[in-house]
Design a protein around this nucleic acid. Sequence first.
DNA 1: CCTTGACTTGACCGACCGGTCTAATATACT
DNA 2: AGTATATTAGACCGGTCGGTCAAGTCAAGG
Lengths: 197, 197
Amino acid sequence: MSINADTKDRILATARELFHGRSYADVGIKEICTLANVQKGSFYHFFPSKQDLAMAVIDDMSDDWAQGFVAEAFDEALPPIERLDYMVDAIYYWQKAAKSAEGRMPGCLFGNLALEVSTRDEVLRARLNAVFDKASASFHKALEQAVELGEMPPLDTAATATAMLAYLEGVILLAKTRNDPEVVRILGPAIKSIRIE
Amino acid sequence: MSINADTKDRILATARELFHGRSYADVGIKEICTLANVQKGSFYHFFPSKQDLAMAVIDDMSDDWAQGFVAEAFDEALPPIERLDYMVDAIYYWQKAAKSAEGRMPGCLFGNLALEVSTRDEVLRARLNAVFDKASASFHKALEQAVELGEMPPLDTAATATAMLAYLEGVILLAKTRNDPEVVRILGPAIKSIRIE
DNA sequence: CCTTGACTTGACCGACCGGTCTAATATACT
DNA sequence: AGTATATTAGACCGGTCGGTCAAGTCAAGG
């Protein structure tokens, strides 16, 4: 192991921050390298291409989510419907914190990337799709349990789960465009009203 | 008037198509000029910058919408709630047609641009915000009338209108990521279930 | 000690970016 | 006809892009 075993991690963390705060196309490898204190050669030692970096960033963020507040929000100990509110709250506080730290609401990295690259890069699109599928599955489980527990009248849980995810992404999109996290707080809770029979 | 009085229009139409089908950053002025059969000098005669072009494209598309299917969908002759379904249908058929023509679902130009540029360009962000506000207003009017006519129990019509717009954008985002317009058809109608009291 | 191979350095590459500029050309007005 | 003005043409600019590469440095294994 080298003394700089964390080089790859630094690249990853820096890229993630920059991609999230701006966009894929706007952030160059040179900039990532500079901020991560890494030389270009080292970068290309770890990542064969910018696309590969993007995939790594997506996977990295996805893992962090799965182990982070998404795991908390969809904790089976919580009543299913409360999980939805937890998720909305988590997003709200996160975006609010990000805005006060950097002045701008970054929105959802996955949503941002999806709209930016999915017409141009099939590989990344597929990756992002998988992330959305996984997220949708969390909603699905919560809905199934809600129905099972009688907390919610029966419905098409799979379709509704996807619709809820879509709603969340849409709310974040609008909030980002307004650069106002309050949009999430105001519109977010209506996620519970969405129903597909 | 010059024999090529439509030069500006050709630039605009080409840029709109390219921005919509790909992204703002991915499309260069040179490419727009080539496809529009215009030279760079002419381009910069009509548009002082790429940013100005983007604004013009946003305005152009927004006007087309306002006079096109959005006007039809939100026609006051239609029962308010049917307007929502009309809107969803219109989006579905549009995206489906675009996909079979070009192989890819382009999604919503405004949503695409919003996520791509709103952290980087305040001017464009403001413009996109205005477009969303205008769209939200159409929903708002429909909801107000629905409540008035007793077709819908009273609710916070303004917030719900924005929520519906957010939902639509989210559905389009997901559909684009899946490159599958059917997502719009399946999830779209649930827009009517969204409620903010 | 010497080799191996992972890692780093930074110069370098061609392509392309948004944007500028000068000169030519077409049109409209007097 | 002559002149002003709008439009077009396309070479050109500095800068940046993603990516390559040859030349190293350095720690671990034999």
